[in-house]
Amino acid sequence: MKNSYIGQAWLVIVLSLCFGVALAAVQTALNPKIESNKLRDTIGQIPSLVPGAADGKAETIGGQTVYRAVDAQGQHVGWVIPARGQGFADVIELLVGTDKDVKQITGLYVLKQLETPGLGDFITGDAWRSQFKSKPADVPLVITKTAPKTDSEVQGITGATISSRSVVGIVNGAVEKFRSAVANE
């Protein structure tokens, strides 16, 4: 009985073993590259988020993973805070750069969003994101429909009010939370 089972299934068993070996080889060969790709997604953005930064290190502050941005000499120049929250459609994931005292926002990057193509996804555009540069981090930012008048105002996107409002809400929440976490350290 047993013999006949093996007679029937030997091909499947041999194939599984072959594929197992092949997959193991692929995993060993490619995994370092895939991991570095994933890492580059976040760490690679740090120089563009914090002026003068060259590299970043992951750290846990207040139960939250953040990146300490350092310049070429290893001097601490700022922070990069990963933040996520509900957008217009699905979740938006952001990286917020601040200076080292968390007084000023230095940059914003959208890691993941599924906002409406052609409208909501303008939050990923350079023009809109650059508004966040050198905004104060200690007062909540405000969305306006017209050109910003005060320091803490950010102009929303026509036709994508909720998307822009969500981003500002997520940024405010993340910065606020991180600031109090740093103060408690």
Binding site: F88, T116, G118, L119, G120, F122, A127, W128, P140, L141, V142, I143, T144, K145, T146, A147, Q155, G156, I157, T158, G159, A160, T161, I162, S163, R165, V168, G169, N172, G173, E176
Partner: peptide
């Protein structure tokens, strides 16, 4: 945090009817 972000722009709806004919840019 949420309220601070929302005071003014409440009347503009994010709907598909507003937009396709006008490119979504800054005001």
């Amino acid at each position: 945090a949420e309220k601070a972000a929302t005071p003014q722009a409440v009347d503009v709806h994010h709907s598909y009817s507003v937009a396709p004919d006008q490119p979504a840019t800054l005001n």
